[in-house]
Amino acid sequence: MIRVELVKMFRRPRTYVVAALLCGLPLIVAVFLATTRIPPPPGQGGAFLSAVLSNGALYPAAAMALVMPVFLPVSVAVLAGDAVAGEASAGTLRYLLVRPVGRTRLLVAKLVALVAFVLFAIVAVLVTSYLTGVALFGSEPAAGVALPADVTSMSGVTITPAGLALRLLGTVAYIVVSMLGVAAIALFLSTVTDSALGAAMGALAVLVTSQVLVTLDAAAAVQPYLPTRYWLAWIDFFRDPILWRDIERGVGIQVVYLLVLLGAAWANFTTRDVTN
Protein backbone atom coordinates (compact mmCIF):
# COMPACT_ATOMS: atom_id res chain seq x y z
CA MET A 1 0.00 0.00 0.00
CA ILE A 2 2.89 2.32 0.80
CA ARG A 3 4.26 1.69 -2.68
CA VAL A 4 0.85 2.49 -4.16
CA GLU A 5 0.71 5.78 -2.26
CA LEU A 6 4.22 6.69 -3.40
CA VAL A 7 3.35 5.93 -6.99
CA LYS A 8 0.21 8.06 -6.68
CA MET A 9 2.22 10.90 -5.14
CA PHE A 10 4.98 10.90 -7.71
CA ARG A 11 2.75 10.40 -10.74
CA ARG A 12 0.80 13.46 -9.77
CA PRO A 13 1.82 16.70 -11.52
CA ARG A 14 0.82 18.64 -8.41
CA THR A 15 3.77 17.19 -6.49
CA TYR A 16 6.22 18.69 -8.91
CA VAL A 17 4.42 22.02 -9.09
CA VAL A 18 4.64 22.40 -5.31
CA ALA A 19 8.29 21.35 -5.29
CA ALA A 20 9.03 23.82 -8.07
CA LEU A 21 7.33 26.61 -6.12
CA LEU A 22 9.41 25.72 -3.07
CA CYS A 23 12.59 25.86 -5.13
CA GLY A 24 11.50 29.10 -6.76
CA LEU A 25 11.40 31.26 -3.65
CA PRO A 26 15.10 30.88 -2.74
CA LEU A 27 15.95 31.38 -6.38
CA ILE A 28 14.14 34.72 -6.51
CA VAL A 29 15.73 35.86 -3.26
CA ALA A 30 19.14 34.81 -4.54
CA VAL A 31 18.73 36.79 -7.74
CA PHE A 32 17.83 39.93 -5.81
CA LEU A 33 20.67 39.45 -3.35
CA ALA A 34 23.19 38.79 -6.06
CA THR A 35 22.22 41.80 -8.16
CA THR A 36 21.89 44.33 -5.36
CA ARG A 37 24.35 42.84 -2.85
CA ILE A 38 22.35 44.43 -0.01
CA PRO A 39 22.39 41.98 2.88
CA PRO A 40 19.58 42.13 5.44
CA PRO A 41 20.68 43.67 8.75
CA PRO A 42 21.93 41.13 11.29
CA GLY A 43 19.18 39.45 13.26
CA GLN A 44 16.54 40.46 10.72
CA GLY A 45 15.43 38.84 7.52
CA GLY A 46 16.13 35.19 6.96
CA ALA A 47 18.87 33.47 8.90
CA PHE A 48 22.20 33.10 7.07
CA LEU A 49 21.18 35.57 4.39
CA SER A 50 23.91 38.06 5.24
CA ALA A 51 26.49 35.27 5.34
CA VAL A 52 25.74 33.84 1.91
CA LEU A 53 27.07 36.94 0.19
CA SER A 54 30.55 35.89 1.21
CA ASN A 55 30.09 32.18 0.65
CA GLY A 56 27.40 30.69 -1.58
CA ALA A 57 27.96 27.21 -0.19
CA LEU A 58 25.88 28.25 2.81
CA TYR A 59 22.92 29.16 0.61
CA PRO A 60 21.13 25.81 1.11
CA ALA A 61 20.86 26.65 4.82
CA ALA A 62 19.55 30.13 4.00
CA ALA A 63 17.07 28.57 1.56
CA MET A 64 15.81 26.30 4.33
CA ALA A 65 15.30 29.33 6.55
CA LEU A 66 13.29 30.93 3.74
CA VAL A 67 10.92 28.05 2.96
CA MET A 68 10.63 26.63 6.47
CA PRO A 69 8.41 29.14 8.26
CA VAL A 70 5.61 29.41 5.67
CA PHE A 71 5.97 27.72 2.31
CA LEU A 72 6.88 24.24 3.39
CA PRO A 73 4.29 23.88 6.16
CA VAL A 74 1.61 25.29 3.88
CA SER A 75 2.36 22.78 1.17
CA VAL A 76 2.52 19.93 3.68
CA ALA A 77 -0.79 21.04 5.18
CA VAL A 78 -2.40 21.20 1.75
CA LEU A 79 -1.15 17.77 0.74
CA ALA A 80 -1.93 16.15 4.07
CA GLY A 81 -5.35 17.78 4.18
CA ASP A 82 -6.01 16.29 0.78
CA ALA A 83 -4.76 12.85 1.77
CA VAL A 84 -8.01 11.29 2.93
CA ALA A 85 -10.55 14.01 2.17
CA GLY A 86 -9.31 14.30 -1.40
CA GLU A 87 -9.73 10.57 -1.98
CA ALA A 88 -13.17 10.81 -0.44
CA SER A 89 -14.35 13.63 -2.69
CA ALA A 90 -12.77 12.05 -5.78
CA GLY A 91 -14.73 8.89 -4.99
CA THR A 92 -11.65 6.70 -4.80
CA LEU A 93 -11.61 6.26 -1.04
CA ARG A 94 -14.47 3.77 -1.07
CA TYR A 95 -12.81 1.76 -3.81
CA LEU A 96 -9.58 1.55 -1.86
CA LEU A 97 -11.46 0.46 1.24
CA VAL A 98 -13.41 -2.30 -0.52
CA ARG A 99 -10.27 -3.56 -2.21
CA PRO A 100 -9.82 -4.06 0.80
CA VAL A 101 -7.18 -1.73 2.21
CA GLY A 102 -7.23 -1.58 6.00
CA ARG A 103 -8.09 1.89 7.20
CA THR A 104 -5.13 2.00 9.59
CA ARG A 105 -2.82 0.85 6.81
CA LEU A 106 -4.17 3.55 4.56
CA LEU A 107 -3.43 6.23 7.17
CA VAL A 108 0.11 4.98 7.69
CA ALA A 109 0.73 4.77 3.96
CA LYS A 110 -0.53 8.33 3.55
CA LEU A 111 1.83 9.54 6.26
CA VAL A 112 4.78 7.74 4.73
CA ALA A 113 3.98 9.27 1.35
CA LEU A 114 3.89 12.71 3.00
CA VAL A 115 7.29 12.11 4.56
CA ALA A 116 8.56 11.09 1.14
CA PHE A 117 7.17 14.31 -0.28
CA VAL A 118 8.86 16.45 2.38
CA LEU A 119 12.15 14.67 1.78
CA PHE A 120 11.80 15.09 -1.95
CA ALA A 121 10.91 18.78 -1.63
CA ILE A 122 13.74 19.53 0.80
CA VAL A 123 16.32 17.72 -1.26
CA ALA A 124 15.08 19.55 -4.34
CA VAL A 125 15.40 22.89 -2.52
CA LEU A 126 18.85 22.00 -1.17
CA VAL A 127 20.19 20.94 -4.54
CA THR A 128 18.78 23.88 -6.48
CA SER A 129 19.80 26.39 -3.83
CA TYR A 130 23.31 24.96 -3.63
CA LEU A 131 23.67 25.35 -7.36
CA THR A 132 22.12 28.82 -7.20
CA GLY A 133 24.38 29.83 -4.34
CA VAL A 134 27.58 28.65 -5.93
CA ALA A 135 26.62 30.11 -9.29
CA LEU A 136 25.50 33.52 -8.02
CA PHE A 137 27.67 34.09 -4.97
CA GLY A 138 30.59 31.78 -5.60
CA SER A 139 32.05 29.45 -3.03
CA GLU A 140 35.22 31.46 -2.54
CA PRO A 141 35.29 34.04 0.22
CA ALA A 142 34.84 37.52 -1.13
CA ALA A 143 38.36 38.56 -0.10
CA GLY A 144 39.59 36.76 -3.15
CA VAL A 145 42.22 34.67 -1.40
CA ALA A 146 42.15 31.10 -2.66
CA LEU A 147 40.89 29.01 0.21
CA PRO A 148 38.96 25.78 0.42
CA ALA A 149 35.23 26.32 0.28
CA ASP A 150 34.88 26.17 4.03
CA VAL A 151 31.87 27.72 5.65
CA THR A 152 31.87 29.77 8.81
CA SER A 153 29.53 28.51 11.51
CA MET A 154 27.43 30.90 13.51
CA SER A 155 30.05 30.66 16.23
CA GLY A 156 32.77 31.87 13.89
CA VAL A 157 34.48 28.50 13.67
CA THR A 158 35.03 27.00 10.24
CA ILE A 159 32.94 24.06 9.15
CA THR A 160 34.61 21.61 6.80
CA PRO A 161 32.69 20.47 3.70
CA ALA A 162 32.14 17.10 5.39
CA GLY A 163 30.89 18.82 8.52
CA LEU A 164 28.60 21.01 6.43
CA ALA A 165 27.19 17.94 4.69
CA LEU A 166 26.53 16.27 8.05
CA ARG A 167 24.88 19.37 9.43
CA LEU A 168 22.71 19.71 6.35
CA LEU A 169 21.76 16.07 6.74
CA GLY A 170 20.77 16.76 10.33
CA THR A 171 18.80 19.78 9.12
CA VAL A 172 16.92 17.69 6.59
CA ALA A 173 16.10 15.08 9.20
CA TYR A 174 14.97 17.70 11.68
CA ILE A 175 12.76 19.49 9.17
CA VAL A 176 11.16 16.21 8.16
CA VAL A 177 10.37 15.54 11.80
CA SER A 178 9.03 19.08 12.23
CA MET A 179 6.73 18.61 9.26
CA LEU A 180 5.46 15.34 10.73
CA GLY A 181 3.51 17.34 13.30
CA VAL A 182 1.91 19.47 10.56
CA ALA A 183 1.14 16.38 8.54
CA ALA A 184 -0.46 14.69 11.55
CA ILE A 185 -2.70 17.70 12.27
CA ALA A 186 -3.85 17.98 8.66
CA LEU A 187 -4.22 14.21 8.30
CA PHE A 188 -6.44 14.07 11.36
CA LEU A 189 -8.62 16.90 10.07
CA SER A 190 -8.67 15.17 6.70
CA THR A 191 -10.36 12.18 8.32
CA VAL A 192 -12.90 14.43 10.01
CA THR A 193 -14.11 16.32 6.98
CA ASP A 194 -14.59 15.34 3.35
CA SER A 195 -13.36 18.76 2.24
CA ALA A 196 -9.64 18.75 1.48
CA LEU A 197 -9.60 22.52 1.55
CA GLY A 198 -11.29 22.56 4.95
CA ALA A 199 -8.73 20.19 6.38
CA ALA A 200 -5.82 22.20 5.02
CA MET A 201 -7.32 25.46 6.28
CA GLY A 202 -7.92 23.94 9.68
CA ALA A 203 -4.32 22.79 9.94
CA LEU A 204 -3.07 26.19 8.82
CA ALA A 205 -5.29 27.89 11.38
CA VAL A 206 -3.65 25.78 14.08
CA LEU A 207 -0.18 26.65 12.80
CA VAL A 208 -0.86 30.37 12.50
CA THR A 209 -2.32 30.45 16.02
CA SER A 210 0.71 28.63 17.28
CA GLN A 211 3.06 31.01 15.46
CA VAL A 212 1.30 34.02 16.95
CA LEU A 213 1.49 32.58 20.46
CA VAL A 214 5.19 31.76 20.03
CA THR A 215 5.94 35.47 19.65
CA LEU A 216 3.65 36.52 22.49
CA ASP A 217 5.45 36.87 25.81
CA ALA A 218 2.17 36.55 27.70
CA ALA A 219 1.81 33.02 26.36
CA ALA A 220 5.21 31.94 27.68
CA ALA A 221 3.63 29.26 29.85
CA VAL A 222 2.28 27.29 26.90
CA GLN A 223 5.08 28.01 24.44
CA PRO A 224 7.11 24.87 25.06
CA TYR A 225 4.09 22.83 23.98
CA LEU A 226 3.29 24.67 20.76
CA PRO A 227 3.89 22.73 17.56
CA THR A 228 5.81 25.54 15.89
CA ARG A 229 7.88 26.56 18.93
CA TYR A 230 11.04 24.71 17.87
CA TRP A 231 10.58 24.85 14.11
CA LEU A 232 13.69 26.93 13.54
CA ALA A 233 15.81 24.98 16.00
CA TRP A 234 17.68 23.36 13.10
CA ILE A 235 19.60 26.64 12.90
CA ASP A 236 21.38 25.38 16.02
CA PHE A 237 23.03 22.74 13.85
CA PHE A 238 25.15 25.59 12.50
CA ARG A 239 26.45 26.68 15.88
CA ASP A 240 29.64 25.24 17.22
CA PRO A 241 29.37 23.12 19.22
CA ILE A 242 25.92 22.13 18.03
CA LEU A 243 23.23 23.32 20.46
CA TRP A 244 21.12 20.22 20.93
CA ARG A 245 18.71 21.55 23.52
CA ASP A 246 16.01 22.97 21.25
CA ILE A 247 16.57 20.28 18.63
CA GLU A 248 15.87 17.57 21.18
CA ARG A 249 12.81 19.37 22.45
CA GLY A 250 11.59 20.00 18.93
CA VAL A 251 11.83 16.34 18.04
CA GLY A 252 10.11 15.41 21.29
CA ILE A 253 7.18 17.76 20.79
CA GLN A 254 6.70 16.67 17.19
CA VAL A 255 6.69 13.02 18.22
CA VAL A 256 4.05 13.81 20.84
CA TYR A 257 1.87 15.63 18.30
CA LEU A 258 2.36 12.84 15.82
CA LEU A 259 1.40 10.17 18.34
CA VAL A 260 -1.66 11.97 19.62
CA LEU A 261 -3.03 13.21 16.31
CA LEU A 262 -2.28 10.07 14.38
CA GLY A 263 -4.00 8.21 17.22
CA ALA A 264 -6.99 10.53 16.95
CA ALA A 265 -7.04 10.11 13.17
CA TRP A 266 -6.94 6.35 13.63
CA ALA A 267 -9.68 6.33 16.27
CA ASN A 268 -11.88 8.55 14.13
CA PHE A 269 -11.24 7.09 10.71
CA THR A 270 -11.50 3.41 11.61
CA THR A 271 -14.93 3.81 13.16
CA ARG A 272 -16.31 6.43 10.84
CA ASP A 273 -18.93 6.04 8.13
CA VAL A 274 -17.52 6.55 4.66
CA THR A 275 -20.43 8.15 2.89
CA ASN A 276 -18.60 9.75 0.03
Binding site: V7, R11, G91, R94, R99
Partner: peptide, 24 residues
Protein backbone atom coordinates in the same frame (compact mmCIF):
# COMPACT_ATOMS: atom_id res chain seq x y z
CA UNK B 1 -20.65 1.91 -5.21
CA UNK B 2 -22.47 4.99 -6.35
CA UNK B 3 -20.63 5.72 -9.54
CA UNK B 4 -17.12 4.83 -10.54
CA UNK B 5 -14.12 6.41 -8.85
CA UNK B 6 -10.72 6.78 -10.48
CA UNK B 7 -7.69 9.03 -10.32
CA UNK B 8 -8.44 11.49 -13.10
CA UNK B 9 -4.84 12.29 -14.02
CA UNK B 10 -3.91 8.64 -14.64
CA UNK B 11 -4.85 6.38 -17.51
CA UNK B 12 -7.44 3.66 -17.04
CA UNK B 13 -4.79 0.99 -17.09
CA UNK B 14 -2.68 2.82 -14.49
CA UNK B 15 -5.77 3.16 -12.32
CA UNK B 16 -6.48 -0.54 -12.44
CA UNK B 17 -2.84 -1.35 -11.76
CA UNK B 18 -2.92 0.86 -8.67
CA UNK B 19 -6.16 -0.63 -7.38
CA UNK B 20 -4.83 -4.10 -8.01
CA UNK B 21 -1.63 -3.34 -6.13
CA UNK B 22 -3.53 -1.78 -3.22
CA UNK B 23 -5.49 -4.90 -2.35
CA UNK B 24 -4.25 -8.20 -1.00
Amino acid sequence: VEGPGAYPHLSGRANLTLFDAAGP
